[in-house]
Each structure stands twice: as structure tokens, then as C-alpha cells.
């Protein structure tokens, strides 16, 4: 659905995006991670033809961007760097104007389309109030409604849960998963690891303009071949396992053992009590930290 090749953007002397090869497949919920200023938004803008690449190519829905924008963009819903709407108009009027601006969609069922999009994001109640009085969360929902207006095949969302309360975040997550189940591919950029971990099937990590990781979340979080044991008899366990314990931290042991069940049997036979035992998995946070052995505070992109 999205494929970039050696995508590069230079703002004057600043290299904001450096030879990025993105590969987002149909049906993915793709989490695009990166610290603030790592080039996420610039990349997203290049995908949409808002910012023109210095070099490299972008393909969206199999067609080159920005050249094929006229045919590609109507099938893409976007939320880029926060929602935007005219404050003196109501949410509904804003959507109607945006729908009319596209030109391709018919006038006849505009009202229905707008109402459906508003209902999807749970904004049908506040739709007839002026946007000026909206909270950040309501603006965010309105922005998402705008993105859903044309029933897109691909959703490109930049920080979609910004400003939402926990309840709103859960609703957003459920909505996105439902849309994904109905066949919408979702490209979601975020700096919230937990959000991506709960939502995404594939992950790309951007670090100071470079794509340092791109893989299925399941692969990244695959068991590491080690088992974590918590036992009150830690000393006895260390003696028993002799040499297989890689790390000891009070009652917590990290043991080189492919199969936790075998390890458990060994420990129990030796009369060692076990509180907790399970395969070690890297959290996304560890994966990202390992990949971005970076120097925090060094931002190379203008805000």
C-alpha cells in the first residue's frame, strides 16, 4: 500500500529524512514510531505530496506520489499533525465544506456521508456546535471523521490519540481495529509505544531521519530463548542451574532455557519453589531503545 525507496528530504543543511525504505502491506496496522523531531511528520507529508522529496520515490496504492495524487488521495484518509477546522462553523458545516471541496463526491448524499462519518467517531451529539467551542478531544474526533469521509482504503494518521482521554483512546482503538477488520489499511505514526504495541501488527522505527527497524511486531517480540524465573530460593536455583543463569536481581533470575516447561520441571524436582516463570520477551520499548542507541536532545528537524 505504501512503498518508499531511498526517500530523502533535506531542509537546507538539515537532513530530516534519510534514505527511508518503508513497506506497508495491505491489511497492515503499521505503527510508525520515532521520537519528536525524528522525521515522522516530514515522511508522512511526503507520502501525501505536501512536502516534495529531495530524492527517492514514493508509491501509495501502487502509484507514484505526488504525480498520481489525483487518483490516489481520494482513497486515502488523513490526519496530519493535529486536526484543523474553521472555528466559526459547526463541525457538520466543516465536514460538508471539506466534502464539497473534493469535487468528486456527489452533492446529493453529502448530508448522509457527513452524518455517517460523525456517527462513526461518536460526534453526532456535538456536530451542530461551533468548532471554536470544541475541546481538543472533540477536534481530534472531528478530524478523524473528516479522514473517514470518503471511506478510504488507506488511513494515514499522525498522532491520532493526541488530546483524547483514556475512554476516548479506547474508543479510537476499537474504531481503528474495526475499520482494519473491514479491510482498511492503517498507517499510524506515534511516539506512544504502548499505543502502537496494542494496536499494530507491523512496526517501523525512525531515528534521526533513518528507518532503523521495520518488522512484524510478533517477530520483534518473539521469545528471546531465555526464561525469567522469580523464586524465593534464588541462591539454590543459581547453584542448581550452574552457569545457565545470565542475570540475577534479587529473586529474579534470567535463565538461558528455550522451554520454560522443562526448566520448571527441573526446578520443582530439586525442591525449589517458584513464584513466577515465563519466557522472556522484549517489550517494544526495549526494541526501540536498542535500535535507537541515540543521543536524546539532539534534534535535527525544525519543529
Amino acid at each position: 500500500m505504501i512503498r518508499t525507496h531511498a526517500l530523502t528530504k533535506r531542509f537546507g543543511p538539515v537532513l530530516a529524512v534519510d534514505r527511508v525504505d518503508l513497506d506497508v502491506r495491505e491489511g497492515d496496522v503499521y505503527g510508525f514510531l520515532g521520537a519528536n523531531g525524528s522525521g515522522k511528520t516530514t515522511t508522512v507529508r511526503m507520502l501525501l505530496g505536501l512536502v516534495l522529496a529531495t530524492s527517492g520515490t514514493v508509491e501509495v496504492l501502487g502509484e507514484p506520489m505526488p504525480r498520481a495524487g489525483r487518483t490516489v488521495l481520494p482513497q486515502v484518509g488523513t490526519l496530519v499533525e493535529g486536526p484543523a477546522a474553521y472555528g466559526h462553523l459547526t463541525g457538520r458545516a466543516n465536514l460538508a465544506l471539506l466534502d464539497a471541496a473534493g469535487g468528486r463526491s456527489g452533492r446529493r448524499d453529502r448530508a448522509r456521508r457527513v452524518a455517517e462519518a460523525l456517527e462513526l467517531v461518536g460526534m453526532d451529539v456535538a456536530a451542530d456546535r461551533r468548532v471554536r467551542g470544541y475541546s481538543l478531544g472533540m477536534r481530534q474526533r472531528l478530524g478523524l471523521a473528516a479522514a473517514l469521509l470518503q471511506r478510504p482504503r488507506l488511513l494515514v494518521l499522525d498522532e491520532p490519540t493526541n488530546g483524547l482521554d483514556p475512554q476516548g483512546i479506547r474508543e479510537m482503538r476499537e474504531l481503528l481495529l474495526r475499520l482494519n477488520a473491514e479491510g482498511t489499511t492503517i498507517f499510524l505514526s506515534s511516539h506512544l509505544l504502548a499505543e502502537v504495541e496494542q494496536l499494530c501488527s507491523r512496526v517501523g522505527v525512525l531515528d534521526r531521519g533513518r528507518l532503523v527497524v521495520q518488522d512484524d511486531l510478533a517477530t520483534l517480540r518473539a521469545p528471546t530463548g531465555r526464561t525469567v524465573v522469580r523464586t524465593p530460593d534464588a541462591a539454590a536455583a543459581v547453584t542448581l542451574l550452574d552457569g545457565r543463569v545470565e542475570h540475577r536481581d534479587g529473586q529474579r533470575l534470567v535463565v538461558r532455557a528455550q522451554d520454560p516447561a522443562d526448566l520448571n520441571a527441573t526446578l520443582v524436582e530439586a525442591g525449589i519453589r517458584v513464584h513466577e516463570l515465563g519466557p522472556e520477551r522484549h517489550g517494544l520499548e526495549q526494541v526501540v531503545l536498542a535500535a535507537t542507541t541515540g543521543h536524546p536532545g539532539e534534534s535535527r528537524e525544525p519543529a
Partner: peptide, 14 residues
Amino acid sequence: QTGTLRYLLVRPVG
């Protein structure tokens, strides 16, 4: 300034 320009352009409006 209001940010609506980018949403117009990705509608897309040429």
C-alpha cells in the same frame, strides 16, 4: 495558519 490548507490539498484539491 489554521492548518486547513493541508487538508484541502490532500482532499485532493490541486
